[in-house]
Design a protein around this nucleic acid. Structure first.
Lengths: 169, 169
DNA sequence: CTCAATACGTAGCAGTCGCTACACAATATT
DNA sequence: AATATTGTGTAGCGACTGCTACGTATTGAG
């Protein structure tokens, strides 16, 4: 065990917050280290590689989002149309804005197939689709996927057309 | 007039091709200059700024996409449901894949509000929505926007879930 | 207490970034 | 032919990139 694991977890938490607030544009390990209250030297010591660090941080953020979503929408089954509207309403709350921004930044880095971004994007969207599929009536993978597509498109447009819409209540 | 305008246009064309093929990840002006068959020094001489260069290149690409879309789908009015399916089918063709990848890369850079990306993203999505609105029955801005959202979500999932799907016929 | 493993600071490498200073060449104008 | 404008090459700046070499503290086990 040792201190390393403890400090690793602390670093992941702090860097998660930093990424949610600042995005994926300024992810030099020196900046991340400062956010974590340590040095670039130590981040490499803990995680070996910047990519591995990002892997763990992104995974941690995604897990947090899923927890929030479960808390807000439960596990009841409802019609696809209703779930889409409920999801849109919930996820449009300002609390989710940083995570959604981060999501689309991740997508942008993933679309050319570069890792670790594509693997993470695939994983996260799969989780969403399964989450949806288990909450709609007469579920099929196609219906869940298309509902998810519709939701994501709406969120993308919110970010682009009204960049400040999610910030106020 | 002078040679500058001629060489500017040639540079825009070549760099458009380069960006479509290679994305927005490796857009150092030295790489762009090589793609255009000139030097970084000259690109700054022509365009003043890297941002201005990207502005013009992205605008050129967007214009090209619109031309293609008009050619393939005409200006007929049809039901929103039908247009969504037709658009999905057309835009899923491999010809459009590089442009769609570029689009989501642009979105990823735009979601934190940084320029010139956000301005371009806003402009392009506006154009799409208007394009859609003028081709559906009983058009409203809301219907066109939501149709566009649905389409974009589908494209995003295609890129992430089946990264190679658009490459073959 | 000894000594090895773990933890961490300092400095730096080789590369890239957008952009500029300074030179000179080619062309246009008078 | 003299002069001004436009075009282009070379070299480099200062800041940043992920990562490493090398040292030294700190901690653990025997």
């Amino acid at each position: 065990m040792g201190k390393v694991d403890i400090k690793k977890k602390a670093a992941i938490e702090k860097i998660s917050g930093y990424l949610l607030e600042n995005g994926l544009n300024n992810t030099g390990i020196r900046a991340l280290a400062q956010a974590a209250g340590t040095s670039d030297r130590m981040l490499i010591y803990y995680f070996g590689t910047k990519d591995e660090l990002l892997n763990q941080v992104l995974g941690s953020i995604a897990a947090g989002v899923t927890v929030q979503l479960d808390a807000l929408l439960g596990t009841d089954v409802r019609s696809a149309d209703l779930l889409l509207e409920e999801l849109t309403a919930v996820v449009s709350q300002p609390f989710f804005k940083p995570a959604i921004q981060l999501w689309f930044e991740l997508v942008g880095l993933a679309v050319r197939g570069s890792e670790p971004y594509l693997a993470n994007a695939k994983l996260f969207s799969d989780n969403w689709i399964q989450w949806i599929e288990s909450r709609i009536e007469a579920p099929t993978a196609e219906k869940a996927t298309d509902l998810y597509a519709h939701l994501e498109g709406r969120l993308m447009i919110q970010l682009i057309q009204q960049p400040d819409a999610l910030q106020s209540a």
